[in-house]
Design a protein around this nucleic acid. Structure first.
Lengths: 164, 164
DNA sequence: GCGTTTGTACAGTTTAAACTGTACGTAAAA
DNA sequence: TTTTACGTACAGTTTAAACTGTACAAACGC
């Protein structure tokens, strides 16, 4: 029995919406939020009960979140079941995950597009598509610039919070 | 018949991947890219043929993209069919869409969470959940700060490109 | 060692999204 | 006006994702 279930439910729903913006599925977001709100690490069975999903389902959810470094497994003496908890530094983690994803993607795309551009240039006649590819390259360069800037902003935000 | 179909196909696939990062569905991304690569505005039938999807499907895709202000309908004298083209200023459009989404979301969430916080504070005894809600608020404040900064970065990138 | 508990692989089911074809309303052409 | 052609609403189908229950293998307590 949760204290004030309706209020907690509001919190869960609201925060999950934010996490969905980070490309987490609704169920994974919800699972993360529940785990985050809990004051102790949770077992699969507990999460299964709280989410109302099967243990298998929770298991794959936890695996997803672990792959993203958003949850950690912890050990507690005398407890046989696996215990999980959310990682500290929410902001840092999420932004890091997101920025990494974007930056590596833009980097790969830039390479890929300029390789294509070269193939086109190697042709005897210039092709119409060349203009478009060039536009795409510019697009990715700007994206990259924006995200590099964002990354340093985030680092600064994080540094600021550690001073106080 | 497309010129060098395999090369064009590469370009389409690569660029679509980028658009998917902006929360477009794979099909919508592909549709947008095809339209973007075409040098003239396209009709539903042309897009249907090029994508290999039904006209109905293309129609809903175009509607999605229109809702996001990513394509425009254009008129050409003597052509009965509806003609569509992608909007200019790719970078501007996509970032604008994305930043708007994030900023309005964080703003709403901040409000929502502080309202919840107030409800908790109104209680006789402080609750454990309060700490967590506070952490969520801080998280959203940082997000907002980061995105406001990103927004101004994007404006600057855009300004720079218009000077030259 | 043996029995019990826990996590997870797998097959089957449910649920939601994407897609298709028909059929109709509307607007242009004759 | 009649005819033709186009866009789109709608119902049904296909496809993919999320989820469940069973069944098994590894880990623990005895």
């Amino acid at each position: 029995m949760q204290p004030e279930p309706y209020l907690t439910d509001d919190v869960i729903n609201e925060f999950s919406k934010t996490l969905e913006l980070f490309d987490l599925s609704p169920s994974d977001s919800r699972l993360f939020t529940i785990l985050f709100l809990n004051h102790q690490p949770m077992t699969l069975d507990e999460m299964s009960q709280t989410t109302g999903k099967s243990k298998t389902s929770v298991n794959t959810g936890i695996r997803n979140l672990s792959d993203l470094n958003l949850v950690n497994q912890v050990w507690k003496k005398g407890v046989r079941k696996d215990l999980y908890t959310t990682t500290e530094d929410l902001f840092q983690r999420f932004m890091h995950y997101y920025l990494d994803k974007w930056l590596s993607h833009t980097s790969i795309q830039k390479q890929s597009l300029s390789s294509i551009e070269n193939k086109i240039n190697a042709r005897p006649q210039g092709e119409l598509i060349e203009t478009k590819v060039k536009q795409m390259l510019v697009f990715h360069e700007r994206l990259e610039k924006a995200f590099i800037q964002l990354k340093s902003t985030c680092q600064q935000i994080n540094d600021d919070s550690h001073i106080s």
